[in-house]
């Protein structure tokens, strides 16, 4: 072992290197999350974290478990495919509550709600029903379109200008 006689300085350095490497492994063990690398070069639990966020829109299926009558009213009408919360706003607070009556949703105001979709504009698809401001002559839409869930007017009344 004479060849290692003068290699003390190298061995000391190698020892330092080993200690640093072990230290690196120990620190890494504590700082790298367990799920890192589970699916790829990222923290696997981040997927679960994101999935655990709260929902604000309950979804029309949830609404229809209680309000089946409205769903029936809607079906067949021009609003058949307009989901509840598109007009009524986010209702998870109402729908998912233990006591839904504690969070009664505010009724939308037809004077401001309907024109969000139905205000006339050349940019909209031609077949989409659109009205000018003089169509209602200042009255809220619900005056004539009494059932907003199925708003087509069947009777041939005087009506407004399209």
């Amino acid at each position: 072992m004479n060849s290692f006689k003068n290699a003390g300085h190298l061995l000391r350095f190698a020892g330092l290197f080993v200690i640093a490497f072990v230290l690196f492994l120990v620190i890494r063990h504590y700082y790298v999350p367990k799920s890192f690398g589970q699916y790829g070069h990222y923290r696997g639990d981040a997927i679960k974290d994101d999935a655990a966020r709260p929902t604000f829109y309950a979804g029309h299926d949830t609404c229809e478990t209680c309000h089946a009558d409205i769903a029936t009213k809607k079906s067949g009408g021009p609003h058949a495919h307009v989901n509840c919360e598109a007009c009524h706003g986010p209702q998870a607070i109402h729908a998912l509550a233990d006591d839904p009556t504690a969070h009664i949703p505010v009724k939308p105001d037809s004077a401001t709600l309907c024109i969000k979709c139905h205000a006339a504009s050349l940019a909209k698809p031609k077949k989409f029903p659109q009205v000018n401001e003089d169509h209602s002559m200042g009255m809220p839409c619900i005056t004539c379109h009494t059932n907003p869930h199925s708003p087509a007017i069947d009777t041939t009344g005087t009506g407004g200008k399209k």
Binding site: D50, A51, R53, T55, Y57, D61, V82, N83, A86
Partner: peptide
């Protein structure tokens, strides 16, 4: 956008799709 991951993993659709009146 994370495609409403908290919704689609629960069988719901995204908030934008849920509220699009013309599908």
């Amino acid at each position: 956008c994370d495609l409403c991951y908290h919704r689609i993993t629960k069988g719901l659709t995204t908030a934008c799709c849920e509220n699009c009146p013309t599908a």
